[in-house]
Every structure is written in C-alpha cells, then in structure tokens.
Write a protein that binds this DNA or RNA. Structure first.
Length: 610
DNA sequence: AACGAGCGCGCG
DNA sequence: AAAGCGCGCGCTCGTT
C-alpha cells in the first residue's frame, strides 16, 4: 500500500482528459500520423467486457479518453479511429476490441513486431522491453485494478496514460534503427494477427467422451507399471517413483562402478540420466535378466506418465471449461528466436502424433474433432526445411532430389549403393533402417551437426558419421556451405539477415554453430506467414459473399494449416488452401518449383485426414 | 505458498 | 575453434 502511495507525480507526463465525442474527434484528427494507443478494459475479452479508457500519445497529442463519459461508449465511436495509424504493444489485444466494435480494418502496428524484425523473435512483456531497451522500470500494480469503477483513481488514470507514453517512446527507439527491409518484416508479423485472432477465438473441439476413455486406458497401464516397479523396488528404497533424482541415487547406491561408468549423466548436476532412451539402452544391455525387465518397465512408466500428465485430464478439463467443448490455445506470433510461432495454454503444437505406444496403436489426435456436420481440412508443406535450404543456397541437386522424388531414399541409395525407395522400405527392414539413417543425416546437416553429434544421435561410429557428412557435402555442396556463410555473416556483423527482410541479433559473443539453421527455419516461417495471410483473406472473401459460413481457420503448426468447415464445403476449401499455400511459397521464392509441395486431406478428426 | 533451476519429452 | 535447430509444460526439489 505504502509503495503505491509514494508514486512520484513528477514521473507522469502531462496529458489531457477527453470526455466527449467532439473532443475525441478533434484530438484524433490532430494526431496527423502514427500515435501510440493503449486500452484499459474491464475484462480480457470483448465478449464479457468493455473498453474503459484509451490513452493516445505522439508528439502532437497526449490524451486519455474515458469512454464511460461518452454516449455509446467505445463501440459508438470506434469508427473515428479508422483514419489513424495506431502503434500498440501486442496488437492481438487491441485489434480484438476494434473487431468487436465493427472496425476490423483499423490500422494497428505492433511495436513488439518491429523489435522482432530487428532483433529476432521472443515472447516478452512490455515491462521487460522498457527495462531492456529504455532502462525504464514500470509499476504494473494497477494493471489488474478495477477498470469498471464509476470513479477511477488518479493513480489509475496516470497508469493508463503512461502505457501510451512508454509505447510511443519504444516505437521511436526502434523506428530509428529500422531499415526498409525491417519494415517489410514487421508487416509480415503484423499481417498475421487477424488470422491468429480467428484461430484463437474459434478453438478446436475435443471429443470429451472419447478422450476420457483413452485417458482411462492410460491410467490402467500406469497402474500396472507402478505395481510392477513396486514389486522390484520398495518404498523404503525409492520413496517417489516419479523422481529421477531419487532413482539416480538409488542406482548410484546399488549398482557396481563398472555399470555406472557408461551411464549418461545429466548436464548440470551430473546425476545419472533417466531419459527413456538411456533406460532402453540399459535394458538392451542386459538381455534375459531381471534388469532388462526393470529398465524397460521404468521407461514404460515414464512414457505413460508423460501422456497422462501432458495430454490427459488437463486437456479434458480445458475443454470442459467451455460450453462448446472447444480448446482455445494461444498462437504466439514470432515467439521463437527464429520467428516461428509458439503455442500455449495448451501447446497445440506438441499434441502427439499417432503411433505405437507400449505395443498398441494410440491416437491422441483422434480426440480433436470437427463439430457436427463438419470436417477438418489440413495441409502440410512437405519437407519444407530441406526445400528451403535448397532454395536459399541455390543448390540444384538438392532441389531436384526434393522436388522429383524422395530425398531420404535418394540419400540412402547413394550411401548404401543399392536402390532404396519408399516402397522398398515397406517390405525391407534394412532399407527402412537405411532410409531412416539418411533422414537423420539430412536433419543433422540442417541443424549444423558435426560428425561427433551425428555419431551420438545416430548411434554410429565417428568414422561412419563423417562418411555420411562427406557424402552429403559432396552431393549438395551449396546447401552444405550455407552454414559457413551464415557463421561468417554472424561473426562479422552479429546479425543474420533473413529472407523476409528481418534480422536476428545473435548477441555480442555469438554461439556460431547454433545459428546455421536460423535462416532455414525463418524462411519456412516466412512462406507460412504469407500462406496464413492469403488464406485468411480467402476465407473472409468467401464469408462476405455468404458462402462457407461455417468455415474457420483453427490452427497452424509450423508447416501446416488446419481449417474446420461444413462437410459439403471441404473439397472446395482444400483446393483454396492448397492454392494459398503454394502462392505463399511463391511469394517468398518466386519461380520455385511447386511439385509435391503440399500434402494432407480432409477428415472427421485430426487423427484421420486423407 | 511461490518461484526458479534442472530435467525430460511431446511437437515441427 | 567449436558444432544437432526451435518451442511449452509437467514434475521435483531447494530456496525464500
């Protein structure tokens, strides 16, 4: 309490209160160019709240508007903002309120996105940026105060105005450093906001009954595994079977040094690693012994526990919180350093693929369904990172192998010396293993791996790994050399310039090997961004003409788009989506080959799309 | 009780 | 000179 009262008035810049439509109109006209804008609202969502205050700040105008003083409130005057250019932080928030007020075309630009265009992505709060960029400390204690109160306190008003002031200063700071390409990149991020709002508001339906059945089954398995483990190790020896640290202590106490010697250790604390992969390896090293059973059972337990804690009741509960049983996750634009999206609350980008789980086919994605009378429509860019690598590095051989066939089979064929195809992998186990190894090599190369890393990851000798790399570098010299060009650029400039015009700052002492994949990952994001914007426009145009009334954009997962639509509309929608994705790719790589670029289909749920 | 570090693991 | 990228989240455990 005391701290809030000692607020220093000298810190508050001067601003005018505006409480009439006429005064607001006059002030907005006076802005004459971009101005920072910030809302204080009575709730986080337009569905159950209203805009109480807007603060506006640029060189000419510094005002705070109380919409409770204006007839019709914010919604009655929102159209007055139609001519302006509004600088905001977290555009998704402000734009939602403009959309709800019937003004979806209001021009908002996100200062966070300008920063991302220059430094690279991240998921930051305004307070952090003010601290890092302007060395300003902000008191956010009023942020959650009651913005519906009849009489707002002076402290609330000052707080509300300050946000616009700070946003404006941040905007000036970053505009001064932006070049034309940075502005182009900022627009790429900004333009995705309407599509993201649609995805976040629509959500994806969970078949709660189906999912509960699945979770119940997992629970039975977990109970079995728990009992089996407890038969072998009592509570006296390991109190908590979910504790990796306790298992580490237990094995350190009970196993001979010869056994412990080869056990992988954790990075920071040097404990015995309890990764599933490590446990499986230990099991494999003791065939036919109780130890094999034990390590396998512990690994099984960890797997099923992961599914239960990450993809079990937490998803059901999220769905049951809503009336329509839909899960509404967030899609955070430019949240990754490379500019990729992240997803949170829940993270829909990490829902398990269908697979054999402990000996039986398991599909979590089947729990994510289309509504009644509807289907899901989904397309992926196929092998987009390798394709992008070929295009960025101008590697004709890699491009040809990507476009004309199956690159992993191609590499496998060259490495083994015998012809391997996707078909031959279906019948020949060795071919399948060789193709999988080839895949490992190509991904290793994309991620800038050396022979040592590749050897560990592929569980092969250093010589073998080096041989693979040599082969790859020989066949795809331009693609292979891209990493050296990127590292050279970073060591000279500390920045990487991306295909969309943005730059990524790698720090004063850049970690060179880390960044060789950044331009590739970023280019894949850039073409997805173009596809997202195009697709949103396509859907809006259809719906404005009264068609596709039930169609909605519901998700984007790195290289994929997902829609939900009335069954009768799906075939047409699939074609539209395909076109939007192809054109998005061509926006970034004009004239590039489009053969076999996208794949996917239509289905009743996320697990069955064909 | 709240928080951060460390670990592990799901996805592209 | 080196050298496998990018996320979010659940859990445990020590600290405050």
């Amino acid at each position: 309490m005391q701290e809030v009262e000692t607020y220093e008035m000298t810190d508050i810049p001067e601003y005018q209160m505006v409480s009439s439509k006429a005064a607001l109109s006059k002030a907005l006209k006076k802005c004459d160019g971009p101005a920072a804008l910030d809302f204080e609202t009575t709730s986080l969502s337009p569905a159950d709240g209203r805009v109480r205050l807007v603060s506006i700040c640029n060189k000419r105008v510094q005002i705070l508007v109380d919409f409770d003083q204006i007839r019709g409130g914010f919604n009655g005057v929102a159209h007055l903002f139609g001519d302006g250019e509004w600088i905001v932080f977290n555009k998704g928030f402000e734009l939602r309120w403009f959309i709800a007020a019937g003004c979806p075309k209001t021009r908002c630009r996100d200062v966070g996105n300008l920063r991302k265009a220059i430094l690279g992505g991240g998921n930051y709060k305004l307070m952090q940026l003010l601290h890092w960029d302007l060395d300003i400390e902000m008191d956010k204690s009023e942020q959650v105060s009651n913005w519906a109160a009849a009489q707002l306190t002076q402290s609330q008003l000052d707080y509300a105005y300050l946000d616009a002031d700070r946003t404006w200063r941040l905007w000036n700071y970053w505009s001064d450093q932006a070049d034309a390409d940075h502005w182009r990149c900022m627009a790429m991020f900004d333009n995705m906001v309407p599509a993201v709002i649609e995805m976040e508001e629509t959500g994806i339906m969970l078949d709660v009954k189906q999912h509960k059945k699945l979770v119940k089954h997992w629970q039975v398995i977990k109970d079995e595994k728990t009992a089996a483990i407890r038969d072998m190790v009592s509570e006296d020896e390991v109190v908590k079977i979910t504790s990796d640290a306790q298992w580490s202590d237990y094995f350190a106490r009970n196993m001979p040094d010869s056994f412990l010697k080869g056990w992988t250790r954790t990075e920071k604390t040097g404990q015995l690693s309890m990764r599933g992969e490590t446990l499986r390896k230990l099991a494999g090293a003791a065939p036919g012994t109780p130890l094999e059973t034990f390590f396998d059972t512990l690994a099984d337990f960890k797997t099923i526990s992961k599914y239960l804690s990450s993809f079990g009741d937490s998803l059901t509960k999220k769905a049951e919180l809503t009336k329509d049983k839909r899960i509404r996750a967030r899609f955070n634009i430019g949240a990754a350093k490379t500019g990729r999206f992240s997803s949170s609350g829940p993270n829909l980008q990490q829902i398990p693929r269908d697979k054999e789980l402990l000996g039986e086919h398991t599909s979590v994605r089947k729990s994510f369904v289309a509504g009644i009378g509807r289907k899901l429509v989904s397309l992926d860019y196929s092998g987009i990172e390798l394709r992008v690598l070929a295009l960025l590095s101008d590697d004709d051989q890699l491009l040809q192998d990507m476009v004309e066939g199956d690159i992993h089979s191609e590499v496998a064929t060259r490495i083994t010396g015998r012809t391997i195809t996707k078909d031959s992998c279906k019948t020949n186990k060795d071919d399948k293993a060789a193709r999988s190894a080839a895949k490992g090599v190509s991904f290793g190369i994309i991620y800038g791996s050396g022979a040592a890393g590749l050897a560990v990851n592929m569980r092969t000798s250093l010589d073998n790994a080096q041989g693979y790399i040599d082969f790859w570098a020989d066949r795809y010299p331009n693609a292979f050399n891209l990493r050296y060009e990127v590292m050279d650029e970073v060591s000279r400039t500390k920045f990487i310039r991306m295909v969309d015009g943005g730059t990524v700052y790698m720090g004063a002492k850049p970690d060179l090997p880390k960044c060789s994949n950044y331009p590739v990952q970023r280019a894949a994001l850039a073409l997805l961004a173009r596809a997202i914007v195009r697709h949103k426009h396509s859907l809006d145009a259809l719906r404005e003409r009264g068609r596709h009334r039930l169609t909605a954009f519901i998700a984007s997962i790195h290289d994929a788009l997902i829609d939900e639509a009335a069954s009768a509309d799906c075939e047409e929608l699939l074609k539209i989506m395909e076109d939007d994705m192809v054109q998005g790719y061509l926006d970034v790589f004009p004239g590039a080959p489009i053969d076999n670029l996208v794949e996917g289909g239509i289905g009743p749920n996320w697990g069955e799309l064909d």
